[in-house]
Simulated assay, not measured.
Amino acid sequence: MRSALLIESVERELSRFLDRHRAVLTGVHSDLAMLADAARQAVLSGGKRLRPTFAYWGWRSVQPDGALGEEQLIRAAAGLELLQACALVHDDVLDSSDTRRGQPAAHVRFAGQHRDHGWPGPAEGFGDAAAILLGDLLLSWSEEMFRDAIAGLGADRAGAAGNHFDLMRTEVVAGQFLDVLAQSRGAFDPDEALRVIAFKTSKYTVERPLLIGATAAGGAERLLGSLSSYGQALGEAFQLRDDLLGVFGDPDLTGKPAGDDLREGKRTLLVALAAELADPAQLRVVDAGVGDPELTADGVRRLREVLVDTGARDRVERRIADRAAAAATAIDSETLVLPDAARALLGLAQAAAHRSF
């Protein structure tokens, strides 16, 4: 299945699921249409659909195109996007981010509805509370959609895939907590930054989805080991590219204002390396600017100069190339991965390393 057709299938499954559950919510009370509409916006307003894509190619590493069970796997993989929508909604509350994919974040949208209706009390409080509940609902729905679909593959394969789905949810929360902890401690630690990436991105975005697909397909242990190696390496490359785009990217492409990661005080490898390599004057710029919510465009510019002049940006670029190459090696050396899947995974490794959004 071509990438465009896969994404169309995922979008169709998500739309059908959301339509059914909108009817459930509005059957409880008409006011819940607001929540249903917000869920649809959070899920269907864009996104790369990486997790379903990797789940599909994990499946196709074992099974040929159109094999029995592929439809159930795609439906289960679509459920991973409900988990991702939950994570993004909650992440925007945690980071006080105003936008997501170029549109108002869920908590901002809810706060705006509060103001539009002239309700009493603080609009921001309602916005945060409603967004947290929206994220909780999406988390619940992800479990429902995944389990209902994967059950059609039989108890053994469904159980194995479900175990990876359980670990995926635990690991992403663990990574998110480690990220919040790193920001609260205020230190710039490259090892800590890589640990956050391992759980918040590598396992969540690439490794576990691949293993969900491959175990659902009945993949052998040797193949699963190679997919794990690929996922860990590529997930790191993907996140490091994301960190660079958060500082140096084009907002028209990324959908977020350039420099927001600096204002939010994210302890990325990029920033940690700059702090480690900086001279005293440069370190003062880093200490003063990273985590300042009022950081001006000029402040962002000065921080960018430090990130470049210390060599931190070049080091991250080299690590991205190294990790993308390691991902390719894991697939090239694995003769058990079916050829179509190997080609697709190699292409995804290149795309992740060199993307601009």
Rank of each mutant, 00 (worst) to 15 (best):
R315L: 07
T254C: 14
V108M: 03
E171K: 09
D332K: 11
T26M: 11
P280R: 06
D279Y: 06
R12K: 08
K203S: 05
R40L: 10
K266N: 08
L348F: 01
M145N: 03
R319E: 11
A297C: 07
A344M: 15
A129M: 06
A160F: 07
K266T: 12
R304V: 06
A272E: 04
G135C: 05
R315Q: 12
P120T: 10
L73M: 13
D242Y: 06
P104I: 13
D116E: 14
A237Y: 04
I212A: 04
L50Q: 01
F248W: 12
A129K: 05
A288C: 04
D242G: 02
C86Y: 14
S228C: 08
G289E: 03
I197Y: 02
R22V: 11
L88E: 05
L167D: 14
R355F: 06
R304C: 07
A158K: 01
L73W: 01
L336M: 15
M1G: 04
G249H: 08
G175D: 14
A105Y: 01
A55W: 02
D191W: 13
E81D: 15
L44A: 09
E71P: 00
L133K: 03
A258N: 15
V285R: 00
D261W: 04
I197L: 15
R51Q: 13
R20E: 07
T205C: 12
F17S: 02
A349Q: 02
L139T: 08
E192I: 10
G66W: 15
W57C: 15
F126Y: 09
G27M: 05
W141Y: 10
A278I: 02
M1T: 09
A160W: 05
V43Y: 00
Y230V: 01
V285T: 04
V89L: 02
E171I: 11
S228Y: 11
G213Y: 00
Q72D: 15
H29G: 09
V308W: 02
V28P: 03
S184L: 08
A105G: 06
A344V: 08
I132E: 01
N163S: 08
A161S: 10
E294V: 11
L270D: 11
A272R: 01
A237L: 07
A353D: 02
L153F: 04
S96M: 06
R319N: 10
G159W: 11
E8W: 11
E171P: 08
A123Q: 08
H29D: 13
I7R: 02
R40I: 07
A349L: 09
I197E: 03
R20Y: 09
D136S: 04
V206C: 05
G265Y: 15
G218K: 10
E317P: 00
T335F: 07
A151P: 01
T53N: 03
P209C: 10
C86W: 14
D250T: 12
R115H: 13
S9I: 08
D19S: 14
D309G: 01
S15N: 05
L210Y: 00
V89F: 00
E221Q: 12
A216F: 05
Y204L: 10
D65K: 03
A42R: 00
A4N: 04
F126E: 11
K266L: 10
P104T: 13
D148P: 04
V28E: 07
I132G: 00
F54T: 15
D189I: 14
T310N: 02
F357T: 14
F110T: 01
A326N: 13
S45K: 00
F17L: 12
R355P: 02
A325I: 13
V93F: 03
I150Y: 03
